[in-house]
Structures are given as C-alpha cells and as structure tokens.
C-alpha cells in the first residue's frame, strides 16, 4: 500500500514533466501537421541553460529558493523561446510546402545539431547542481514503508496545474488562441482572413519551447543532474505521450504524459526497471491497435 502511493506520487511527477513536453509536440503537430523531432532537444537546451542560470544565481548570492527559481524560469523561458523560434525559422519554414518527410529529416538534422552544439559548448560531462529544495513531507508510514512527498514534487505538480490553466485560457479565450486554432483548421483560409500565419506558427513554436523550458528547469531542480543527451529519451517519451493521448489534443497530451509516467514508475517498482521502456512502447502499440487516433484524439473520418 505504502509503496503503491509512493509510486503514484513519483509517476505523477514524472508524468507532469512528460506532459509538459508533450504539449509542445501536440501543439506543433496540430498547427503544421508534423513531428517536431528537435523538441526533445529544446527541452535539453532549457535544462542546460537552467544549470547555468542557477549556478550564476548562486554565485551572485541570490539564495532565496522561490526567488531563484522564478528568476531561472523567466530567464530560461526567454532564451529557450528564442531557440524554439530559430529552429522553426531555419529548419521548418523553408520546407512548409515540401513533402511531409522533408521537414522530418531537417528536424532530425536539427536534433543532431543541437545535441552536438551543446556537447561542444558546454562539455560532455554530466552537470550536477546542489540540491535546492531538499526534503519534503513524510505523509504516513505503512508496514514499515514511509511515503514521502518531496517539495520538488509539490512544485512540479502545482506548476504543471497552474500552467495548464493558463495555457487552456490562452488557447480557448485569447485572440492568439483563436488564430492558432484557425491555422490548425485551414492555413490558406486563415491567411485570407488577414491573419499572419507565419507569425502564428512562430508563436506556437515559442510557446511549445516555453513549456519545454519549464519542464527543463523543473527536471534540473528535481534530479539535480543534467547532460547534453537527456533530450532524446525525454523527447521520445513525450512524443509517445502525445500520440497515446491523441496527437493534436491538448488534454490528450497531458493524459498521455501522466499515463506514461505511471507506467514507468509502477513497472520499475513492481516488475523490472530494465523493461520499463519496453512496457511504455508496448502499451502504446496496444492502445493504438484498438484506438487508432489515441485516447482523446478526434477519430479521423475519412472525407471522400
């Protein structure tokens, strides 16, 4: 029982992070219908920048934890959004009219580029930071197993919830959200209505990057170690989450992230940690066999 609750908490935390990254995938997919393969690496860039900023803040003597984290978030979101914008501008915009596979390849190229760029400029070694928010609550003890809820876990889960609320508001209530959804439906028509499609797509990439930035900062604080290669695995997991939930669906991305977080933490705890990824992908294949559009995706009605 105790272990079950503990894994639930861990899974929720992990799932929140995946969900945040998955949102970026799903948004970009929704608007231009392609997989942004470099998104995982954007998240990695964010995590690396977070390490730099946190170290810098430490050196400057800003030690109040909430303040440090807020500043870090703001700075990292700013720079990561520029990365998101540049990635779109360089690797995707010139290929908007090309076949579906061309941007995929340039995206893979971008992913390789970003990874190696970070490895070159920041070094290949794992970067540890000192624990910023150690400790947590001990919820209860059951059969000699005490269940912990770390402060960092509370932070991750609450930040995710807040972001989701802000984000849903942005998409459903603001004029940017309307433009964004219009572009998803029909880019030509949207352009005819006087909306700058290019700019909307750029903003979407920046927004996706900002969400990845938040995920990057929180993971840095949570785990305390980061290196240039974390983007790939996280990217694939988040992409899996987006597809599992139904790509293009925002709540679906979050749901998919949570499910994958849960699968990972429970499978590691009760079965075998080595096969947790096998389980993740296996369940993805199973789900898609029975629900080809993902859990919350709109079923694709073939218009003939």
């Amino acid at each position: 029982m105790g272990q079950f609750i503990q894994q639930l908490i861990n899974g929720l935390t992990l799932g929140a992070v995946y969900g945040l990254i998955a949102l970026g995938y799903t948004m970009v997919y929704g608007i231009i219908g392609m997989i942004n393969f470099a998104h995982g690496d954007i998240y990695m860039v964010a995590a690396i920048i977070a390490v730099t900023v946190l170290t810098l803040l430490g050196a400057l003597g800003i030690s109040a934890v909430p303040l440090a984290i807020l500043i870090t978030l703001a700075v990292v979101i700013f720079f990561t959004a520029i990365y998101g914008w540049s990635v779109e501008r360089v690797a995707y915009r010139p290929l908007r009219k090309a076949s579906r596979l061309a941007p995929l390849i340039s995206a893979i190229g971008m992913s390789i580029f970003l990874q190696n760029m970070v490895q070159l400029t920041q070094g290949a070694r794992v970067k540890p930071i000192h624990a910023m928010m150690p400790g947590g609550f001990e919820l209860f003890t059951h059969d000699g197993f005490s269940v912990h809820l770390a402060y960092t876990q509370i932070m991750i889960i609450s930040v995710t919830i807040i972001l989701l609320a802000v984000f849903s508001y942005l998409i459903t209530r603001t004029s940017f959200g309307r433009q964004q959804r219009a572009c998803e439906q029909d880019q030509t028509m949207t352009a005819l209505l006087g909306i700058n499609v290019d700019r909307t797509i750029s903003y979407t990439f920046m927004l996706g990057a900002a969400l990845a930035a938040v995920a990057g900062v929180m993971v840095t604080v949570y785990y305390g170690v980061v290196d240039f290669s974390i983007g790939f695995v996280a990217g694939i997991k988040a992409f899996t989450a987006a597809v599992l939930g139904g790509i293009g669906s925002l709540p679906g991305a979050m749901l998919g992230g949570l499910i994958i977080g849960m699968i990972e933490s429970f499978w590691s705890a009760y079965l075998s940690p080595e096969y947790k990824d096998v389980a993740t992908f296996g369940i993805l294949i199973l789900v898609l066999m029975f629900r080809p559009s993902g859990l919350l995706g709109r079923p694709e009605v073939e218009k003939v």
Binding site: S99, I108, S111, N116, M117
Partner: peptide
C-alpha cells in the same frame, strides 16, 4: 565538429532540395 556538421548538412541539403 563532425556530428555538428553532419546535422547542419542534413538541414541544409533538405532546405536546398526538399525533394
């Protein structure tokens, strides 16, 4: 630098000749 170049080359070739 070679993998960096490799990634950059993939992007450039694709942008140059999308087909």
């Amino acid at each position: 630098y070679r993998m960096l170049m490799f990634g950059a080359a993939m992007i450039l070739i694709m942008v140059w000749r999308p087909g």
